[in-house]
């Protein structure tokens, strides 16, 4: 499990973990796991996973029951990227000059996955480490449902204002057009990105996270193409993959051909 934290739970006791604004309650019964989670906005978000035992679950939350496939007592935690696209919006727009490239860095929200078992951990559930708002990306007739994040589009990695728990996403913009490309927001297919961790394995498991690089090619006004770089994210230090993509990037010729057919035939 890439050195991510594990706990052994006693039967019948209730445990609580907190990360970001997310609080999770878990209890283990003889043949099932019980869990509940919520976001607490009143407390300061925490960037490290904190643990409390012998707590009680808030009464307004109800347990979700999962039938245990085996008699394991171990529960483990790991980070993962969002389950759909993320639009990072900034107060200031960024301009990329014609026929030039730029690299921007934005923070992406991170999910916490909870699995049961040691050798073959099975996913019990996952939840975002901060409360996220949903938005639409595209026109009102066609587009996709995304998460919305407000952050600065930083031109230097060190300038990224990280959320309590987040991954840095490098965005490579290739402006191949004859005009300036100006934007105050960036769409990242977070569900198609892999998640990596920089540096020491056991030191701070939920910090120093980085996603795959996203490439934005600008061919002209309103002619943008987004893709997730298939090569490993570029970094200077030791890099370790901690989570795979949720959906394989749409880069196959078959898929592109079919989408073209759909556009032409209106089917």
């Amino acid at each position: 499990m890439n050195g991510y934290p594990q706990w052994e739970l006693e039967q019948g006791a209730v445990y609580r973990w907190t990360l970001g604004t997310l609080s999770i309650w878990i209890s283990r019964e003889a043949r099932e796991w019980l869990y509940a989670w919520s976001h607490v906005q009143t407390v300061e978000p925490v960037s490290e996973l904190t643990f409390e035992s012998d707590v009680s679950k808030p009464e307004d939350l109800s347990w979700t029951r999962v039938i245990a496939p085996d008699a394991t007592r171990t529960v483990s935690f790991a980070p993962r990227l969002a389950d759909r696209g993320v639009v990072v919006k900034s107060d200031e727009s960024v301009t990329v000059l014609p026929h030039s490239n730029a690299e921007l860095y934005v923070p992406l929200p991170v999910w916490l996955t909870v699995s049961a078992g040691v050798n073959e951990p099975r996913l019990l559930f996952e939840a975002p480490t901060r409360e996220l708002h949903r938005r639409w990306f595209g026109s009102s007739m066609q587009g996709s449902l995304c998460y919305s994040v407000f952050a600065r589009l930083a031109s230097d990695r060190s300038e990224v204002r990280l959320l309590p728990v987040s991954a840095i996403c490098p965005i490579r913009i290739r402006n191949q057009s004859h005009e300036q490309f100006r934007s105050d927001s960036v769409f990242v297919q977070a569900n198609q990105c892999k998640l990596y961790r920089l540096g020491e394995q056991h030191a701070h498991p939920f910090t120093n996270l980085q996603s795959s690089t996203v490439v934005v090619s600008v061919a002209g006004v309103d002619e943008l193409s987004f893709s997730v770089a298939s090569e490993r994210a570029r970094t200077g230090g030791d890099l370790q993959q901690v989570a795979d993509w949720r959906r394989r990037p749409d880069d196959s010729w078959w898929k592109r051909g079919y989408m073209l057919f759909q556009r032409i035939s209106n089917y």
Partner: peptide
């Protein structure tokens, strides 16, 4: 609207 999880921020 902001406090309602089902309402979209954008549009």
């Amino acid at each position: 609207a902001r406090g309602n999880a089902s309402c979209l921020d954008e549009p």
